[in-house]
Amino acid sequence: MGKLFRLFFKRSNWALPYVIFLVIFVVLPLLLVILYAFQDAEGNFTLQNFVHFVNQPEVTHTFVYSVIIAVITTAICLLLGYPAAYIMSRMQSKSAVIVIMLFILPMWINMLIRTMATVTLFDFMQMPLGQGALIFGMVYNYLPFMIYPIYNTLQKMDHSLIEAAQDLGATPRQVFSRVIFPLSMPGVVSGIMMVLLPTISTFALAEMLTLNKIRLFGTIIQENINNTMWNYGAALSLIMLVIIGLTSIFTYRDKHDDINDAGLI
């Protein structure tokens, strides 16, 4: 009993419940996805799921299409969001806080409700639902995720660097392209990640905004899981996971810094 007591009061052991939880609900599920992806319905090892993926032009086509749509959405968000973040970073801090609040506020509303609102807006303006509505809806949903990190880095930027560049004779354009933009890259990168990752994997948005006319990769995963094609669904999830993992590796450095900021390491 005394030993148990001491074990309990060693505070580094307090993380134990959470460690067990993480193993069961985070690590094990991902391992199971990998296991299921390499099995057939009877549980034998197979590569059939991946062969199936490559041999189905419809699925590979959807995959490429989803990535393209996600990249277009991210690019539009960046083009629209960067100037907004830049303008806000130049505002007086009091009004900037209000504007940033206004941008974040819609994010607190359920995404399905926001998407429903987008659908009704298109109906109201008598515009057809389809690819255009899909991209608008995704930009509408994820634009704040782009603005916020960029605004943060711009805001924290050391203004004496800008002044130094000006003193050394840089034109306003040079100041932006040589000083401000490079320094805001961490914000741009995390903004891109925060928009790209969810847009690649979305499925409900696409179904609602295109009346099921356009299917994204997420839709196909969902259909397979729903139709008890678990192994194929797991294989498709694994493919998505690999793509996302590869994208994350490029930006790992920055994530690492974010974590440092949050003080976990």
Partner: peptide
């Protein structure tokens, strides 16, 4: 992404 978390927990 949500869908991966969802699918992996579903399989679990």
């Amino acid at each position: 992404p949500d869908i991966i978390t969802g699918v992996s927990l579903f399989i679990l």
